[in-house]
Design a protein around this nucleic acid. Structure first.
Length: 595
RNA sequence: GGGGACGUAGUUAAGAUGGUUAUAACGCCGGCCUGUCACGCCGGAGGCCGCCGGUUCAAGUCCGGUCGUCCCCGCCA
């Protein structure tokens, strides 16, 4: 029933044949995409990685091949030998690249049969994601998935070339490494030869790349797997890939220029998109004030306007009291928004309440004046000042949130994104990059009752802010930077601390005592004493970048074998219980009672 | 840890107030068909209604629990 491959060689891919090949003898191999059996003639769409070619079985060309072609089913693997011919007048298929020709089959080999697949292999599949993940090897046959993974391959290839051309050396860092405090939860790996001891999988190669700078490599890069045992999202996986790099003797601007060159080449060569450089820069403080977030989507306006000074003495108690208790009052003006219904507004108010806002005031600018529940509390002068500050005009609507800055920014920042989506303000296919700089070095953690690093404990403080480290740690700005694309953080890094004295001060500010520091990071502190050069670097979420470049809805669509939201693999069944003998060998007892 | 959506044939979905044989489309199987490309026509098979328990004369439908998938908050230096 099945035929051996024998001496047959594939002569062409299924996207290559055209009118120029008419009359040629060819051998194609691939999967049966679809069979259209007319009893007399049988048409098969033959699919391989590159495309689809229609092959025709005609009893007059070869009776045996035609007979056997009746038995072909979806996803059978076949090889055909035949003649390329121009399709009859009016029978071309403009939807196919090879639609002007077909291959008349003289000889068929059925290389393998296939069970009926649980879903049809096509881009617009109706299969749910869990079915797709369970049969991932079938899902990956879909052209769109192959395009994504091939794009990913090309991006990685280009990336290695680009950085190699710029003097970078790819060095592999350990996957079995040491747990670090701070940051995400670690994945642990037991050590059989050291009973009771564990490795941690790296959350990133941070310390190793700094050590490579101490080691004198000057420029290091790596495309590397990282692991974080945290809850998943549409753009987060427990194991993900970073483009990681580090450089010596450099300044922020060197990193920006290098990365901009890389991104430009990626977008130009892989997407045909020309980007202009330099990318806009924005301080963290600006980003928060104008966009309410440290990852602003700059594809549209709707910026936040601070009205605190204007309304602090007005008669609207909500505004006044918010200001009196140290809060802010900010507004977003949505052009043309006055046509929103009461129901729309209620939905939006409920939306911002999800971010801690107690409510949200609004004002519609109508032809016959301002329409709003709060107009009566606002004097002529205050109204004029609000109109001027926000630029609100006829037909617009203003939204107000008054609260502590964190709440104001989170609600309005998220509202801004939602409005842009809802009102279709985001241009399709736009890519807006933006560097965000001068992040705070530390922030107060009320749960742990201590300062924690906003970026990580090796980030250098801004030199001019160094004196503040003792008296007002939360005011110290850092030399950290993020690259934001369309409102998503795709990369982040910093200039590092290369002096042991400053590193020690940093640990002190973080409440990490000398003993703990020595125990957790002793090797790094040691290294800093042996001539560490000034250095800095950056790391990119490679999957996330690819997701944005390919237009995928989820990070899972650019990862060959991703995990579900519960961090399981529906195909392999991982994670699973360990064999008792493995556990015994590792001196591990599993206790799930009471969990 | 919390909020929300979903779970019915191989797949995707419909099943109002609880009611007797659980629908449809696509797919699958058989037959016919020499110009289809989402081929067409005729016929057919296919169901632990996620799972467990409860209410009821009666549960896909109501209640409780549980498992799974997705989205979000917390979390992700």
């Amino acid at each position: 029933m099945l035929d051996p491959l024998g001496e047959w060689k594939k002569t062409h891919d299924c996207n290559t044949l055209g009118l120029g090949h008419a009359g040629e003898q060819v051998v194609l191999m691939g999967w049966v995409q679809r069979r259209r059996d007319h009893g007399g003639l049988i048409f098969v769409d033959l699919r391989d990685r590159e495309g689809i070619t229609q092959v025709v079985f005609d009893p007059q060309a070869d009776a045996l091949a035609h007979e056997r072609a009746h038995g072909l089913r979806s996803e059978f693997v076949i090889a055909v030998r035949g003649t390329v011919r121009r399709r009859p007048e009016g029978m071309t298929n403009p939807k196919l690249k090879t639609g002007e020709i077909e291959v008349l089959v003289h000889d068929l080999k059925i290389l393998n049969v296939a069970k009926t697949p649980p879903f049809h292999i096509e881009d617009d599949t109706e299969a749910s994601e869990s079915i797709r993940l369970k049969y991932r090897y079938l899902d990956l046959r879909r052209p769109v998935m192959q395009r994504n993974l091939i794009l990913r391959h090309r991006a990685a290839f280009l990336t290695r070339n680009y950085f190699a051309d710029h003097g970078f050396v790819e060095v592999e860092t350990p996957v079995l490494t040491k747990s670090t405090p701070e940051g995400a939860r670690d994945y642990l790996v037991p050590s059989r030869v050291n009973p009771g001891k564990f490795y941690a999988l790296p959350q990133s190669p941070q310390i190793f790349k700094q050590l490579l700078m101490v080691a004198g490599f000057e420029r290091y890069m790596q495309i590397v797997k990282c692991f974080r045992d945290e809850d998943l999202r549409a753009d987060r996986q427990p194991e993900f890939t970073q483009l990681d790099l580090e450089m010596s003797f450099i300044h922020e601007e060197d990193v920006f220029a290098l990365i901009e060159g890389w991104i430009c080449r990626l977008f130009q060569e892989l997407l045909g998109v020309e980007l202009s450089t330099p990318f806009p820069r924005m301080t963290y403080a600006d980003a928060m004030n104008r966009y309410g977030t440290d990852r602003p989507d700059t594809r549209f306006g709707l910026e936040l306007v601070d009205l605190t000074e204007i309304v602090k003495d007005c008669d609207f108690r909500v505004f006044r009291q918010a200001v009196e208790s140290g809060g802010r009052v900010k507004s977003i003006c949505l052009p043309g928004g006055s046509r929103l219904s009461r129901k729309d507004l209620d939905d939006l108010i409920e939306f911002v309440q999800g971010f801690g806002a107690k409510g949200m005031a609004w004002i519609k600018v109508q032809p016959d004046g301002w329409q709003s529940p709060i107009t009566k509390f606002l004097s002529e002068g205050v109204r004029g000042a609000i109109a001027e500050a926000t630029g609100a005009g006829q037909g617009d609507i203003l939204f107000f949130v008054a609260d502590q800055p964190k709440v104001v920014h989170e609600s309005l920042g998220n509202l801004r994104n939602r409005l842009a989506r809802q009102m279709n303000l985001v241009e399709d296919g736009a890519f807006q990059f933006c560097w965000v700089t001068h992040f705070p070095l530390l922030e107060w953690d009320p749960d742990e009752k201590r300062y924690v690093a906003v970026h990580h404990p090796f980030t250098a403080p801004l030199e001019e802010d160094l004196p503040l480290l003792d008296e007002a740690p939360e005011k110290v700005r850092s030399r950290a930077y993020d690259l934001v694309l369309n409102g998503t953080e795709i990369g982040g890094g910093s200039i590092r601390i290369h002096r042991q004295d400053i590193q020690n001060k940093m640990f002190a500010a973080l409440g990490i005592g000398p003993e703990e520091a020595a125990e957790k990071f002793g090797f790094l502190l040691d290294a800093l004493q042996f001539g560490a050069p000034p250095h800095g670097g950056i790391a990119f979420g490679f999957d996330r970048l690819l997701m944005l470049m390919s237009g995928a809805a989820s990070i899972r669509d650019v990862i060959a074998f991703p995990k579900t939201q519960k961090a399981t693999c529906l195909m392999s069944g991982a994670p699973s219980e360990a064999d008792i003998n493995q556990l015994l060998e590792l001196c591990i007892r599993v206790e799930t009672e009471g969990r």
